Simulated scan of single mutants.
Amino acid sequence: MARYRGWVSEVLTPLEDFIDHHVDPRELYADLQEIAEGDSGSVFSAHVVGSVNSGSKDIKRENGSKVVAIKSIPLVPGGSQKLIDLKEEFSLMSRIRHENILSMDGMYVDLSEDCLWIKMELMERSLADMLQLSEEGFMLPEGVIAQFTKDTLHALAYLASIGIAHRDVRSDNLLVNPAGVIKLADFSHAVQWTSKSGAMKQGAVGVVYWQAPEMRHGPYDASKVDVWSLGATCWEMAETDPPFMDEDPRRVPDVWPPLSQPEKYSQSFHEFLSLCSSQPSVRPSANDLLTTSFIQGGCGRPFVQKVLADCKDIEDRIHRRQSVDSQGTIS
């Protein structure tokens, strides 16, 4: 990593096998616009203005019509735990290719601002973003809940087939693209297991409102917890908040409360929630849940795209209202 000055080279050492050291990312991506901010860095939309020619290091000019997401993580002298965690996450993600899982497609170093850039598919929004619009009267129809759940189950079934548990399934980590496809993101808490090592783990991770209760009570079977978390996310899609949101996080119950309007939802949805929240010893796998009648009732992509358009209309209305409130006129 000779192209990096002393401390930058040192902090990047854990990730040297994953970084494309031969490319200045600003020759590939331009017109960055911040779209999200997190604890570890910001996410930008960016236009693709160049690509690396296959078999060479030459840059091929692109017209900029394609847009991707770039996560920018600041580098600091001495390094950070986030970079060490990224090594584990990238090592894991190198094994994963699935249409319902958000992949990290490239890693670069932006020397102009001492940042690590991670290229990903640009997604429309998170499920959590959609649920926040409930204050404007937005609710997810049951058919959309079923379709989103089906996508997530496909991701979880695939992960289980290669011995991986996500351990942080929740609305913030379920992203939807413009085609209406849900993709599971953020594998920072994921773990692997093998038939030899087994799936028993210790230590609770993730966020307590979506956390399987057995994670808080000693050793647990990691292959079972994602189904519980998905069930909690289904409960959240119906209620717009996760279960136990008003409880002391140190004293979260082990059983979900009933839905506030149970009559609005089908018997198959109630049965699905019951299956997800069953004891680990009898809790169905993601693959088993794909055959349930609730999942078979998914609405399909065109209707999901219409719902996404409704979300955009609501957001536009909010922005116009905020403009009036701040300026007295619509700008």
Rank of each mutant, 00 (worst) to 15 (best):
L127Q: 11
V208R: 15
N173I: 00
M104N: 09
Q192W: 00
S40D: 14
L290A: 12
S268Q: 13
T291R: 14
F148M: 14
P284D: 07
S94M: 13
S65P: 02
M120G: 02
A179C: 08
L159N: 04
P77H: 02
L159T: 01
H22V: 07
E136G: 05
K150F: 15
Y209V: 12
R167A: 00
G55M: 01
G163D: 06
K183W: 03
L273S: 09
D85W: 01
H47Q: 15
L308Q: 01
H22Q: 15
A238R: 03
D226L: 00
T152K: 10
A30W: 08
S281I: 05
S326I: 02
V181Q: 08
A232P: 09
I314V: 01
K150R: 15
I73Q: 10
K150A: 12
K150S: 08
S277F: 05
I164C: 13
S171C: 03
G300Q: 03
V176E: 13
L111I: 09
D39M: 08
A190N: 05
I35S: 11
G180H: 01
G6A: 15
D186I: 00
W256F: 03
L175P: 02
D325Q: 15
W235P: 05
R283G: 08
Q147P: 08
E89Y: 01
S274Q: 09
Q327S: 13
D325W: 08
H154G: 10
P262Y: 04
A286N: 07
N173R: 02
F269M: 10
F148C: 15
L92N: 03
R251L: 13
V8S: 10
E99A: 08
R170G: 11
